[in-house]
Design a protein around this nucleic acid. Structure first.
Lengths: 340, 340
DNA sequence: ATGAAAGCGCTAACAT
DNA sequence: ATGTTAGCGCTTTCAT
């Protein structure tokens, strides 16, 4: 009915002070049973909805956190968002999702949201801080948790996986199937994550007593197209690899598509392993063997860490490493030695 | 440096009133050149960042709008989000993305965000209003724009596509390739969008002078698995269809995967058309013929409508219909009549 | 258990 | 062009 109902209207109606109404809402135990009921009746009668603007100004909190990713179009992030959101809702927080597309200006924009108090804190999944940001500066103190990616030379609470170990395991898996010529399609190697997976690949080869061959390593950019291009290079080698470990699922799918077009069947002629276990991995044909990370849990844990930080709890500089696991599907097979 | 710098600190430093500082920031033309510079210098000196909480309370606006979808995990929505976000940033608005997962409680939650003034308005892509919501009620007046989906019996500003016409065109496309037995895998028919696409399919058949056959219509739920199941049913028919129009891309991909596993090549033995042109459609094997909608533009337009509404401009009850187009790719081919 | 009163930081009348 | 003043709606001491 009324266009604008404030706490004062409720107070008047219930015959109490605004302070009592506020208490009845936020700290019911500090108000007598009878009063509480009277207040509730008044609230219903005038159709009162608390205006959080007033509260926010008073408490200097917005109840909103921002999840910053590079590319919101990447379905990979959505599962993490789910985890973050679920944990946030439990605590009455809202989650804003923003993406930077590697643009420095936008990276800063999200930081400014916190500085302007439009949000309380940040979960960073961009792999970098905005240029010029110094963690030590009191003036720029922004509650942050780094998820998934991690930052070199910066000590911030982090939730991540061990990319080296996971890649090593994936490579070992292929070696265990009898493969000897195992290629790797990596991500852009300036990025820490790509380097880690590449390092893991090398370590995996070494574990299996296999010599590395730089010709078997092709740089990509995590796109399906990059997987296609890499395939052309790899199949032209003499001898060609019998297995490929890709730094993500999209590139693995590109490899499979290109290989098939080149007349090489997967997994009969080429075993392919991806990384991430995106939704389509399971439904690809053939279903993709890949490395799964506990995305939802990562998101959840990141929010928990951030919430603790916001609540003023001593968090220290957490560095939580979540477990990964190989998901064997039909894109990999034992090497059939078809020597003459 | 300072933990908390307010507009008063700047005013003191610049030797002006807080009102002048506020003006220098928001209406620079109402302040003399000299003053403006002095204020700016003071701002830099004390490292002042405006606290939007104060402004929000004063202006009764948050500068935030919420994009409500059913399932945030559906990559289809992301392109729309991009359009919304881009248009929002131009206007200094932020976009919060929320998903309901068809849960009534959560549907209401986003409405309450606006009622509690945690957000200024809603872009609804859920295809329904929360239970009990009446557009007429002044008390629940919430700025809303409906995108993509539209609501029966409710007059709200809407940005959408013509699903009937698009489906009709898709069916006509298959008929134009010579197909006579054209099947349809629909979405859940209680939903308006699914019904529209089904109606369009029927109209398309009629256009081509083809008799409908209810056995050729299979209900799905927009999942890849549903596409797979539908395929089993369709291939068992006598004679089986030579073409399938699916109500979305995921189901089309399920159909293709299942057909191939059943020994039916696409498009040689079966032509398949999807709907939505999701990112993977282009990279599927074979690349999927589908109906593309201008997602980014839909998002952009929806935000423009909402922004106008928030600005108090007379919007009326807009009903904007955006154009769709068929994207021919390799999952469809002319029917080869292999009659004996 | 409840009330009175003082702001949180900002903007917008209204003056000058 | 600039200053004064009065809140926006809420929470939270501090009293009682």
């Amino acid at each position: 009915m009324a266009a604008k109902v404030t706490i004062a209207d409720v107070a008047r109606r219930a015959g109490v002070s605004t302070a009592t109404v506020s208490r009845a809402l936020k700290q019911p135990d500090r108000v007598s049973e009878a009063t509480r009921e009277r207040v509730q009746a008044a609230i219903d009668a005038v159709d009162y909805v608390p205006n959080s603007l007033g509260r926010n100004l008073r408490t200097q909190r917005t109840g909103t956190v921002v999840l910053v990713v590079r590319d919101i179009g990447n379905p990979f992030y959505l599962e993490i968002f789910r985890g973050v959101e679920a944990a946030a809702r439990e605590r009455g927080l809202s989650v804003l999702m923003g993406h930077t597309e590697n643009d420095a200006e936008r990276e800063r924009w999200y930081f400014d949201m916190v500085r302007e108090r439009r949000a309380d804190g940040l979960i960073l999944m961009t792999g970098k801080l905005p240029p010029g940001f110094r963690v030590t500066a009191r003036s720029t103190r922004v509650p942050i948790v780094v998820a998934l990616e991690y930052l070199e030379d910066v000590r911030l609470p982090t939730v991540r996986i061990d990319n080296v170990a996971a890649a090593r395991e994936a490579t070992a898996y292929l070696a265990g199937l009898g493969h000897r010529r195992i290629a790797h399609v990596s991500g852009p190697t300036p990025e820490l994550m790509s380097r880690d997976r590449l390092d893991g690949y090398r370590a995996g080869l070494a574990d299996a007593g296999l010599a590395g061959d730089e010709a078997l390593i092709v740089r990509g950019d995590y796109s399906m197209a990059a997987g296609r291009e890499a395939t052309a290079r790899l199949l032209a080698l003499e001898p060609p690899p019998t297995a490929v470990f890709c730094a993500n699922d999209e590139m693995a799918m590109g490899v499979i598509a290109a290989a098939r077009e080149a007349g090489v069947e997967v997994p009969a002629g080429l075993s392919v392993v991806g990384f991430d276990d995106i939704v389509f991995a399971r439904n690809f044909s053939p279903p993709l063997t890949t490395v799964a990370q506990p995305r939802q849990e990562i998101g959840q844990r990141a929010l928990e860490l951030l919430a603790a930080q916001l609540a003023g709890e001593p968090v220290g500089v957490a560095d939580e490493v979540m477990p990964t696991r190989i998901v064997p599907r039909a894109s990999t097979a034992e090497l059939v030695t078809s020597k003459t």
